[in-house]
C-alpha cells in the first residue's frame, strides 16, 4: 500500500520539531521515529511537553520548526489514518449530548463537510460502544457517566475512526482498575492487528507490562526505542533528574 522507502516505513516520523510558548521552548528539536505496529509510551515529568508533542503531531499546536510525517506523508494528507484520544479533563462533560452522540463524532472526519452520519456510521458507532462495554449506557447524558466510563467513550470514538495510528493523552488517568485492564486489553488487541499506538503514560510501574516501545521526553528527547533495551535507570534518571528506581518485570 505504501512505498517502502526508508522514511515511509515509519508509522510516525517527527523531524526536528520545536514548539515554544511565549519564547520559552517546551519542545526542543525533537527527532522521533515510531515503527509500525508498536505500542509506545511517552513518559516524562510534568511540564516535559508530552501533551504538547501530541498536539504538535496532530497539528493542533503551532510548530516553530520541524515536520511531522505519517507513513512518509504530511499529516494533513493522512488525517484519516490517525485517531486522537484527548485528555478527559479538556472537555466539559456537562455538554448536552449522549454517549452515542460522542462516539458518532468519530465518523465525522471520514464523512467530511455537509454529510450526515448514515446507517453505516451508526452501526460502526454501536460496535465501538459494544467493544468498550458501554452499549448499555449509549443513551446516557455524558455527565451521568463515571470517569472510567467517560474515558471508554473517548476510546470508542477513536475506535470508530478505524485508523492506523492511535494517539492517546493519558487514557488511564483517573480510571479504576477494571477500566484500566479493559483499556489496555483493547490497546494490545489493536497492536496485534497491526495498528500503531502512541500513549502518554504516567505510571512507570506498569510500563514494561503494558508497552513494548518507549520514548523518554523532557523538553528534549532523551531516548526512544524498545522497552527491553532502553527502559533502565539511566534513562529514567536523565528524564526525571533523580535516581528513579523501578522494578522491571522481566
Amino acid at each position: 500500500m505504501f512505498e517502502m522507502t526508508d522514511e515511509s516505513k515509519y508509522a510516525l516520523n517527527v523531524h526536528d520539531l520545536t514548539v515554544a510558548y511565549d519564547f520559552k521552548p517546551v519542545l526542543w528539536d525533537i527527532h522521533l521515529q515510531v515503527p509500525e505496529g508498536v505500542l509506545m509510551a511517552i513518559v516524562g515529568p510534568n511540564g516535559a511537553g508530552k501533551s504538547t508533542l501530541i498536539k504538535a503531531i496532530l497539528g493542533i499546536q503551532k510548530k516553530i520548526a520541524g515536520t511531522v510525517e505519517i507513513f512518509g506523508k504530511p499529516y494533513e494528507k493522512m488525517r484519516k489514518e490517525v485517531a486522537y484520544v484527548p485528555q478527559k479533563g479538556t472537555v466539559d462533560w456537562d455538554f448536552p449530548t449522549t454517549a452515542f452522540d460522542v462516539v458518532k463524532m468519530g465518523t465525522y472526519g471520514e464523512l467530511g463537510w455537509f454529510r450526515r452520519p448514515s446507517k453505516k456510521q451508526k452501526i460502526a458507532a454501536l460496535e465501538a460502544l459494544e467493544k468498550v462495554g458501554m452499549l448499555p449506557f449509549k443513551n446516557r447524558q455524558i455527565s451521568q457517566l463515571s470517569g472510567g466510563q467517560q474515558q471508554r467513550i473517548f476510546l470508542a470514538r477513536a475506535l470508530v475512526q478505524n485508523a492506523s495510528i492511535y494517539i492517546m493523552d493519558e487514557p488511564f488517568q483517573g480510571v479504576d482498575a477494571t477500566t484500566e485492564i479493559a483499556i489496555i486489553n483493547i490497546l494490545k488487541e489493536l497492536r496485534s492487528s497491526g495498528k500503531t499506538l502512541v500513549v502518554v503514560h504516567h505510571d512507570l510501574q506498569t510500563i514494561p507490562e503494558y508497552f513494548d516501545w518507549v520514548t523518554f521526553l523532557n523538553v528534549k528527547k532523551i531516548a526512544t526505542g524498545p522497552i527491553k533495551e532502553i527502559f533502565n535507570d539511566e534513562n529514567l534518571a536523565k528524564t526525571y533528574g533523580i535516581n528513579y528506581k523501578v522494578t522491571i518485570n522481566k
Binding site: 496532530l58 486522537y84 484527548p86 470514538r157
Partner: peptide
C-alpha cells in the same frame, strides 16, 4: 451542524480530524 457540534464539545479533537 456536525462540525459545530464537535468543535463546541471538543475543539482539540475537532482540529485533529481536520
Amino acid at each position: 451542524w456536525k462540525e459545530l457540534k464537535v468543535a463546541l464539545f471538543d475543539s482539540d479533537y475537532a482540529k485533529s480530524i481536520g
